[in-house]
Write a protein that binds this DNA or RNA. Structure first.
Length: 470
RNA sequence: GGCGACGUACCCAAGUGGUCUAAGGGGGAGGUCUGCAAAACCUCUAUUCACCGGUUCGAAUCCGGUCGUCGCCUCCA
């Protein structure tokens, strides 16, 4: 059983074999921090998160690098509009990004390099490119990569460079390039813009060079996986390949993975389109981070995903179903023999789950395996044919699968003491068959964001999805 | 103009030529259980996979065409 991933370059699902046995290096294009990241951005980050989690679940040692772009045209424009230094702006939104990522339970990357901290690495690369004849300094002092010097240009997008509709959509020449298709490696300093004094002269890096410099700095000249949204395939990733391979003479990335767009209202979500929704907006409408994570993850990464409140409602229900079975398993009290078929049931679920994710991260099929197991566990819970030990084992098992999905409730969730007290009083009221008091306490807890349900093994509580705690 | 992806039930969605009279989630309808509520469980909700041809003993799955939707070629996750 091997993991297969679809490489953008070939379009085929190829067996994943890491460069070094058992170890995987992944680079993911991260956020440009000039404003809050929207849920479309998070789709691509969470897809990478799922990949990392699955690789670790499969036993690989993973080194995950995600850049934070903290200098570029938009950042400069935004900082100027606010009248603050770019560092102040980028610090603010980098922190916001990390907080959003945390609430969405995104795995923390092992390295989160920032462009402005890696200027020397970029300069070094650019000098290498100039030395090898792949880059040139134009009349305005900026440095460009010469696409004509790189015959393999276009292999990632499957575009013949001569077919590019140059000129039609390129705005009036801001810079003095030799060829409209050439891209900037180093932008010469301009009044009012941040710049770095380097051996290349004062200026700032182009966008593409930062990813080449930082990925190779932390993962080496050749590494396993590089992820991003489809909109980065061209020109960003194509340019990364050209400049990296031209500089090092070695293959850059072994497998390219790109996730499809998140759509809203039938078209891709993008700041430029204006149809964006940020995590904070979603929470404000009463949805939980768990539900948001589920909604962004539940559809295969290479399929466009239509994002809506309807999809969030469906996600909320699915996530609750998981939370409830875990609570029920935890509360289960029954003296009886172990279920002799439980082992086979769990083994089968694990095999289905793993095989599905191994097939190019087929998360929909993996979720199918999880929910089939959930229904079967509920049946056995209902029929009381599990022992208490079985129930504990099943719960641990489900949490094990959830190490990949990260959509279930935390194990050790505790109620604040005052709410705990209400629960205890309700138990007493119910023992006395005082239904009025029981119902009143249930309502009081509901007002505090806690749902209480009466099950065979006693009352069962959980936090309301999207409630005050989330 | 060039390149590419996709079209499965009310919605989302899996389906890697035969076990598909097509997983799973949501929604809806009935039922069981229950002080009530909720949850859970059971039954039902596609003999059909945009449409038309073709290949094959056999196709949702392969090929061709038609229609439709979306994306990239420009900053973009």
């Amino acid at each position: 059983m091997t993991l297969r991933l679809v490489d953008t370059r070939t379009g085929a699902a190829e067996p994943f074999v890491p460069l070094r046995e058992g170890e995987v290096g992944i680079y993911s294009c991260g956020p440009t921090v000039y404003g809050p990241a929207h849920v479309g951005n998070f789709r691509s980050f969470l897809f990478a998160d799922l990949l990392v989690r699955h690789l670790r679940f499969r036993g690989f040692t993973v080194r995950w690098v995600m850049n934070i772009t903290d200098v570029d045209d938009k950042i400069i424009a935004r900082a100027a509009a606010e009248g603050v230094p770019i560092g102040e702006l980028t610090e603010r939104y980098a922190a916001a990004f990390l907080e959003d990522a945390r609430r969405l339970r995104m795995t923390m990357p092992d390295v989160l390099p920032r462009a402005t901290h890696h200027i020397p690495e970029m300069v070094e690369l650019i000098e290498l490119l100039i030395g090898r004849g792949h880059a040139y300094r134009a009349d305005d002092g900026s440095i460009y990569f010469r696409i004509a010097s790189w015959p393999r240009y276009g292999t990632l997008v499957h575009i013949d460079p001569s077919q590019l509709r140059v000129g039609e959509r390129v705005s009036a020449d801001e810079y003095a390039k030799d060829d409209a298709r050439d891209f900037a490696l180093w932008k010469v300093a301009r009044p009012g813009e941040p710049s770095w004094g380097t051996s290349l002269g004062p200026g700032r890096p182009g966008w593409h060079i930062e990813c080449s410099a930082m990925s190779m700095r932390y993962l080496g000249p050749t590494f396993d996986l590089h992820t991003g949204g489809v909109d980065l395939v061209f020109p960003h990733h194509e340019d990364e390949i050209a400049q990296s391979e031209a500089a090092t003479g070695k293959p850059f990335v072994r497998t390219w993975l790109h996730c499809a767009h998140l759509r809203m209202g039938g078209v891709k979500m993008a700041k430029s389109v204006g149809n964006i929704d940020c995590p904070a907006d979603v929470y404000e409408r009463g949805f939980s981070p768990r539900a948001l994570r589920y909604a962004l993850l539940a559809v295969h990464y290479r399929s466009p995903l239509e994002f809506s409140d309807e999809s969030l409602h469906a996600a909320t229900a699915a996530v609750e179903r998981l939370a409830i079975v875990l609570k029920t398993l935890g509360a289960y009290r029954h003296e009886g023999p172990d279920d002799p078929t439980l082992t086979a049931l769990l083994d089968e679920a694990r095999a289905d789950f793993t095989a599905s994710l191994d097939h190019d991260l087929n998360v929909a099929a993996a979720l199918g395996a999880v929910f089939e197991l959930v229904r079967e566990l509920n049946r056995r819970l209902e029929a009381r044919c599990l022992s208490a030990a079985d129930a504990a084992r099943a719960a641990t098992f489900l949490r094990g699968l959830d190490a990949v999905l990260a959509v279930a409730e935390e194990d050790a969730e505790r109620l604040p003491p005052e709410l705990e007290g209400l629960l205890e009083r309700r138990v007493a009221a119910r023992a006395a068959r005082d239904w009025t008091e029981s119902d009143r306490l249930r309502q009081e807890l509901a007002n505090a964001g806690v749902t209480v349900e009466d099950a065979r093994d006693g009352q069962r509580w959980r936090f309301v999805e999207g409630g005050p705690r989330d």
